[in-house]
């Protein structure tokens, strides 16, 4: 297999001696045009990898911020195929930034794993995180992905035991997403020291870069997490900018607000050069 965009990006980030900034936004929140501008703003302000949320009516693993973002997106009529079309539009003039689709299993299952894999590959999607599709249940999806260069990104958590991490690592590719706190997205933050061991074990067993997310909102928190992780994921803080801009009646400011936060976070991560 040729080097994937994800691997290439981690090689670059590692060469620069820092951790990657992995940013999340919900596609179609509040509309697809704004999402496109937000994607560009993220890329232009130092986001190394972008997770693109696909909305679902029943987001069991998400806190209020991402729940509401999904509801706004669904209200605007966003479908899974729209999320893929948005990715494809972004990919037209960006050949390097890895795009990860993040969501829940049912819309993908409903479209059909094979049809989804083909469409996602065509759209330039590099990997997916389907929260409610654990290793025990993603076999069919991985078979569909095998024909393309799409990674199944798996989750590891503080509840993942020594024995279980091997199961999580088997068949995983791209990177591992380490959920820092037992909880939903946007909930309380973890002390990097408390999860250092779990992150190191995940990296050792999988041989993959490990990105840490859940509860990281500021440059300071991101920098602290960068000490133990290969990448830091920030989601709810970006999504909150959509909400506050909408509430202030200034939806036009969403891309610039998101860009400013990406700049702050990537600046903080650049200062963590370990070499």
């Amino acid at each position: 297999m040729p080097t994937s965009r994800i691997t290439a990006r981690f090689d670059k980030v590692r060469a620069e001696g820092r951790a990657a900034l992995v940013s999340y936004i919900m596609a179609g929140d509040p509309d697809l045009e704004t999402s496109y501008k937000a994607l560009c703003a993220l890329r232009d302000n130092g986001a190394d990898i972008i997770e693109l949320g696909a909305p679902f009516t029943d987001p069991m693993a998400d806190g209020p911020a991402i729940q509401r973002a999904g509801q706004r997106s669904l209200k605007a009529g966003t479908k899974l195929t729209d999320v893929l079309a948005l990715a494809k539009r972004f990919r037209e003039d960006d050949k390097d930034t890895p795009l990860i689709l993040m969501g829940y299993a049912n819309p993908v299952f409903h479209l059909g794993y094979g049809a989804f894999a083909d469409a996602a590959a065509d759209a330039g999607i590099d990997g997916t995180i389907l929260v409610d599709l654990p290793p025990e249940e993603d076999h069919e999806l991985r078979e569909a992905y095998a024909r393309h260069e799409i990674s199944v990104i798996r989750l590891a958590t503080p509840t993942t035991t020594d024995k279980r991490i091997a199961k999580v690592a088997e068949g995983a590719s791209g990177f591992l997403y380490y959920v820092a706190v037992a909880g939903v997205t946007g909930s309380g933050s973890a002390d990097p020291e408390d999860i250092r061991e779990g992150v190191e074990r995940a990296r050792r067993v999988s041989g993959l870069p490990v990105c840490v997310g859940f509860g990281v909102r500021t440059g300071e928190q991101a920098a602290a997490m960068a000490a133990i992780a290969d990448g830091v994921v920030v989601g709810s803080a970006f999504v909150d900018h959509v909400r506050t801009s909408l509430e202030a009646g200034t939806p036009d400011e969403i891309p610039s607000k998101i860009g400013a936060l990406a700049a702050e976070l990537s600046g903080a991560l650049a200062d963590t050069r370990r070499n």
């Binding site: 069991m60 693993a61 299993a105 929260v131 409610d132 599709l133 654990p134 025990e136 249940e137 798996r154 989750l155 590891a156 958590t157 503080p158 509840t159 993942t160 035991t161 279980r164 999580v168 959920v179 037992a182 909880g183």
Partner: peptide, 10 residues
């Protein structure tokens, strides 16, 4: 099946 988030799997 068991379609739950990894946190709940163990």
């Amino acid at each position: 099946g068991r379609y739950v988030a990894e946190t709940l799997m163990p």
